[in-house]
């Protein structure tokens, strides 16, 4: 009975505002977990060619970061245009700096 009541109440709340459930965060967690395990497994196996391993590692990291930012840092929510611009600007500076440092030291 009381669960019915709670159900009705939560439905009423969800009509007014979209109440988020834990599911999407658990999905984000499981995806992050899977991507992490793939990255570690690729290195632990040690059988794959070096360049290909690098590509796997970078791809896993980038995908995982995008998932975490979208879900956990709420960047996919509305009103996050400035945060997205800020982080993209930061990433642009970082890529420039990494290329600059490698170029400066090694070529």
């Amino acid at each position: 009975m009381s669960s019915n009541h709670n159900h009705a109440a939560s439905r009423e709340v969800s009509k007014r505002h979209k109440v988020e459930g834990p599911q999407k965060h658990i999905v984000g967690f499981i995806l992050s977990l899977a991507l992490t395990i793939i990255a570690f497994a690729a290195v632990a196996a040690g059988e794959i060619n070096e360049t290909f391993t690098y590509i796997i590692l970078v791809a896993m990291a980038v995908v995982q970061v995008i998932i975490q930012m979208a879900f956990w840092m709420h960047m996919k929510d509305r009103g996050h245009l400035f945060p997205i611009i800020g982080i993209i600007a930061g990433v642009f500076v970082v890529i420039t700096m990494v290329i600059m440092a490698l170029y400066w030291v090694w070529w």
């Binding site: 800020g86 982080i87 930061g90 990433v91 500076v93 970082v94 990494v98 440092a101 490698l102």
Partner: peptide
Amino acid sequence: WLFLGAEVVLFGTLFAAFLA
């Protein structure tokens, strides 16, 4: 969020130094 943009740059310099 603006602070985090600056943090991205801070860690970027450290990553750049490490990679080099």
